[in-house]
Amino acid sequence: MGPRPGGSSATYSAGLRFFALKVSQSSPDLPAAVAEIPIQRKKKPLSPWLLVALAALALTLGAYWYLRPAPADEPAPPATEAPTAPIPAAPADSLGPDTTATGPAAAPDSSTTRGHLLLLVPQLSALADRADLRDDPTVREQRDNLTSATARLADGDAHASLRPGLVAAANLLRAVQQRAYPALGDESARLVQQAGQLSGRDDTADEQQQNHAFLQAVGALLQAENTPPAS
């Protein structure tokens, strides 16, 4: 009698040693426990290339997460509405004072020389930007001079002198006159001369009167140059 065919799996206890010895020594016909050791296909380990790809993906995601632009750095969407300018006559001008700014400068007060001049600046700029004038190099230069000269005033600098702005306004009107209004030559020359005599201060009543008279003349010449030139 042989071992039990198709028997159970191998037994691994120490007690079987005694049983096996007994089978051999005392009763060879007894069925012994049949050892059985199955084999199996090896489990395929994860592909190293897959691991590399996963690591690269993780690194990419990590880099994107840490290097992505902060929401504050993203460009703002373009404005769909035009900003409301306090002075309708002022055209959009990148070099001019920011009329929409809510900085320290308050709204120009037309009762003071400074305020009056600042109210005139947009209108002077609009005149210089007119289609028939904006290509003239002298007009353009004087326009830039006016913008520069009044920048400190627009920023609310209390120590800024008025004189550069007043002179620049007169020179701009002079340049416009020479470009398109030959009939206004006397007025513009007088205005430039008047600007040269100003002190640039606005402290005394005398100074205030001179400044006021000058600005009145500027307004008058500006109005005259705002009419289409006789061609």
Binding site: P3, L21, V34, A35, E36
Partner: peptide
């Protein structure tokens, strides 16, 4: 032949009772 053996895992031994 494995079918004639018994295994003892603790002793790491394989018993062949037929091997006199």
């Amino acid at each position: 032949p494995l079918r004639l053996a018994t295994l003892d895992a603790e002793a790491r031994s394989l018993f062949m009772p037929s091997l006199t």
